[in-house]
């Protein structure tokens, strides 16, 4: 009886330890993973494609934050890119109402890793 109780306790401790261990890695990975998914769904069809039948070809976004400025000349900051996604720029459509603040943050996170 007592042994069973101890085993039970052990499993709960193992569970908590496992969660504490996994949680941070899991949520970090989650942000960029989510950013990657959002990019594939909302941006890649323009920014990863070529020869689109469009007035202006969308620029490649690799190494966006390593450049001195964004292609438009605006400062290469998180805030500016966030604004671009929400409001659109030139012929790029606005994503207002379609992406949440969290989505936009995940996207910016992902763009930082896109080299």
């Amino acid at each position: 009886m007592r042994r069973v109780h101890l085993c039970f306790l052990w499993w709960w401790l193992a569970l908590i330890a496992a969660l504490l261990d996994i949680w941070p890695a899991c949520s970090d990975q989650h942000a960029s993973q989510r950013g990657h998914e959002l990019f594939q769904q909302n941006c890649a069809m323009c920014h990863e494609a070529s020869n689109l039948d469009l007035k202006k070809q969308p620029p490649k976004l690799e190494g966006l934050f390593q450049r001195k400025a964004l292609p438009s000349g605006a400062p290469a900051t998180d805030a500016q890119v966030r604004k671009t996604i929400i409001n659109g720029i030139g012929t790029m459509p606005s994503f207002q109402g379609r992406l949440s603040d969290e989505d936009v943050n995940n996207l910016v996170e992902y763009l930082h890793q896109l080299n």
């Binding site: 069809m45 323009c46 689109l52 039948d53 469009l54 459509p93 207002q96 379609r98």
Partner: peptide, 8 residues
Amino acid sequence: YTRCPMPN
């Protein structure tokens, strides 16, 4: 619609 994101 202006927010339409599909390039095609």
